[in-house]
Design a protein around this nucleic acid. Structure first.
Lengths: 139, 139
DNA sequence: AACTTACGAAACATCATAAGTTACATAAAA
DNA sequence: TTTTATGTAACTTATGATGTTTCGTAAGTT
């Protein structure tokens, strides 16, 4: 399955915006991400809606941080981007009242929910200023 | 992204095979899973290669368990099915030596690896006989 | 031997979603 | 007025599980 690289890309962008200290155009960000400006705008728009970046049109315009890095967590950006779930594994729900299917789904879902909770908790603990400073994994 | 429901489907099949105590055709399993026999054969073939089921051709043929349920874990089936990763999130690796990208990927990967380890460990703890008996979540 | 059943497998179509692309409208500064 | 940029719609591409058609092969039945 194709992976969703938006979280990685947007975090990368946000830290660069912090370091550059001035507006950066979608064109420039696209060059940085090896993609094109429309993809950048489409994805950055999700962060703008949540108040993490702002965009200015016209000469000298572009994207700037709307909040300092230490007030943004990986979880904030993750949530801004995805409505879909974290896992490639899906459950089936095609059967009326089969107790086996229910047990199977319960077993899988139990584990995945715990894992997702772990990811969200850990994402929530990492603010973006830690990435700028050089991230050191907890493990 | 489309979800991979093979784990859910195969676990469902294996527990039914245990309970039925006789060979079941791909046609019958397809009816059960609301799909078609070719999809069943394609997926079951991965389990056959690992020795969890066996297939017999001709009259009275079909699929049977090759191991008792208590000797098969969710992890065994998960591993038989997937070479791909567990998460919809992917990292970018498009840049030469950007320390920010490295820090971003390290931060994300650190969390995902921990979550994947949790999933694999928990999957490894659940044998399929527990699903037949009625699974009770640990939480 | 001929027929039927069932798996094995190749080849191709479908679906969903991020990503990529094209085109045009709109706002702001020069 | 021109240039620069974002905003957005519409369409195409890529990927991998899923779905489908078709034919080959093995095993039991008649």
């Amino acid at each position: 399955m194709r992976k969703d690289s938006r979280l990685s890309r947007m975090l990368h962008v946000l830290v660069h915006l912090h370091q550059l200290q001035h507006a950066v155009t979608s064109e420039q960000l696209a060059l940085m991400l090896h993609t094109n400006p429309v993809v950048v705008r489409r994805t950055m728009a999700l962060l703008r809606e949540q108040g993490y970046v702002s965009a200015v049109k016209g000469h000298g315009g572009g994207w700037t941080l709307a909040k300092p890095l230490h007030k943004i967590t990986l979880l904030d950006i993750h949530r801004s981007l995805s409505e879909s779930t974290l896992f490639t594994i899906g459950l089936t729900d095609e059967h009326n009242n089969c107790p086996i299917e229910k047990a199977v789904n319960l077993a899988i879902d139990d584990v995945l929910q715990e894992a997702e909770a772990l990811v969200l908790r850990r994402f929530g603990e990492v603010t973006l200023d830690k990435l700028a400073a050089g991230y050191i994994p907890a493990g």
